[in-house]
């Protein structure tokens, strides 16, 4: 598993596709893909939106299941939580949840990349 994170509009997905040699057609968009696609896709981007959708459906993300079914997936996510605490309760819960899940994933991932201005830095490598 590989995690690619960074702010929005930083070229994270392009960086990930180029770095890991992934065709765009092998990627899934967390914003609108079928929820099961996370178990087949080589790369899933907008992972934070995927978590948002899970929360709206009242479902939990299960890392163990993903590790078992798709251990080599590349997850691309916005790095949330760098603003003032949101007023809306769901927004607060969402950015907190995304953070906790990404911490778990980062611990399991063999690599974590952080992208700023299209440039990636490897911040974890096994």
């Amino acid at each position: 598993m590989i995690l690619v994170t960074g702010g929005c509009f930083q070229g994270k997905t392009t960086y990930a596709c180029e770095t890991f040699g992934i065709d765009r057609e092998d990627t899934a968009d967390g914003m609108n893909c079928l929820m099961e696609q996370i178990y087949q896709a080589k790369l899933l981007y907008h992972f934070h939106e995927y978590i948002h959708r899970l929360m709206e459906m009242g479902q939990e993300f299960v890392l163990e299941e993903l590790k078992e079914k798709n251990p080599d997936i590349i997850l691309v996510t916005n790095e949330l939580g760098y603003g003032v605490v949101p007023i809306d309760r769901f927004d607060r819960a969402y950015r907190e949840k995304t953070g906790r899940i990404c911490c778990q994933i980062a611990k399991e991932a063999k690599e974590v990349h952080r992208v700023v201005c299209g440039i990636g830095t490897v911040i974890k490598h096994d």
């Binding site: 939580g81 907190e96 995304t98 953070g99 906790r100």
Partner: peptide, 13 residues
Amino acid sequence: MLVLVTGGSGSGK
């Protein structure tokens, strides 16, 4: 010693 640990919300800081 003085240490500053910063980070976003939910970052594991």
